[in-house]
Nucleic acid binder design. Structure first.
Length: 279
DNA sequence: ACGCGTGCCTGTTGGC
DNA sequence: TGCCAACAGGCACGCG
């Protein structure tokens, strides 16, 4: 399940591969992944050049320039099982392939970009920058955790009354955190996932930012966590799954004390925590 | 207005 | 052995 570190890894992998190259054509293998406005922009995407590949929240962004010099964006939300892969030009689509981009470099070198998604939760959005406000999910995204300080982070939760894990997962408050990094950061901060936001000391929210930044940056260094489906742009697994302290380890020993990690449902998600280390 | 529960999807896993 | 329920979870949506 690609969260911030995973999408960041994919963007960093794709950027040098795709920048300056041209999208020669697009094959829509599963119409579900494009909404009507995106479909209408498809002719502009074909023949556009790729200026840069980046990330906002969990969205992978291809910054495009159309043949008639308009700016255009291609945003991919990978949800749980989405992958964006660069592959040799002769690579065939597979049963999970949703979009296929034929790419051409200035020197005529050809390659393929595949958007695969087994569970079909993911989507791709073609949109002009001036229309981004019409993309409601985009419009309400909160700040990037790696671009704010601890005080600003703590302020994201002002006035919230629910559980801290639910708030961390809420992309309108702060972006990029999913189930893995919510559990990992709350463990490292010593905060129970079901703690109510108003009951958490300000100092603990500041600390939560510090450890969240540490966890996210360490995971980016390791090219993300490959639990099952996530792959880098080159199709490789990440390595951070080997460093996870609590996610997926229910019933195993807590890394920092002698009791066993517990699992429960918080905010509708499976949640693992240490009943002793997290208050 | 906010918090919570449900549905969307499909492949994998584990129990009987 | 084979079947099938449970599970994985980001986010849209509807409800109270």
């Amino acid at each position: 399940m690609p969260e911030l570190p995973e999408v960041e890894t994919i963007a960093r992998g794709l950027n040098p591969e795709l920048s300056g190259k041209r999208i020669a054509s697009v094959q829509v293998l599963d119409p579900k992944v494009l909404d009507a406005p995106s479909l209408a922009l498809l002719p502009l995407v074909e023949n556009a050049s790729i200026v840069k590949v980046s990330r906002r929240a969990k969205i992978l962004l291809l910054q495009l320039q159309t043949a008639d010099n308009q700016e255009l964006l291609a945003g991919f939300h990978l949800k749980m099982t989405g992958r964006v892969l660069t592959l040799p030009a002769e690579t065939e689509a597979n049963k999970h392939s949703r979009l296929l981009f034929d790419i051409e470099g200035a020197n005529g070198a050809k390659s393929r970009l595949l958007f695969d998604d087994m569970r079909r939760f993911g989507y791709c959005k073609f949109i002009k920058p001036q229309d981004l406000h019409t993309w409601s999910f985009w419009a309400k995204l909160g700040p990037e955790p790696l671009e704010i300080n601890a005080a600003q982070f703590a302020n994201c939760f002002a006035g919230k009354r629910g559980k801290i894990k639910a708030a961390l997962l809420d992309q309108a408050l702060v972006v990029g955190v999913g189930n893995i990094y919510a559990d990992e950061s709350l463990f490292k901060a010593g905060i129970r996932p079901d703690a109510l936001v108003p009951n958490i000391k300000h100092a603990d929210l500041l600390r939560l930012h510090t450890v969240l930044v540490e966890v996210l940056e360490e995971s980016i260094q390791a090219c993300g966590s490959s639990i099952k489906d996530y792959r880098t742009a080159g199709g490789e697994a990440g390595a951070f799954q080997n460093k996870l302290q609590v996610y997926g380890r229910a019933g195993q020993k807590c890394p920092s004390c002698d009791c066993l990690l517990e699992s429960s449902k918080v905010a509708g998600r499976s949640t693992v925590f240490c009943p002793k280390c997290q208050k």
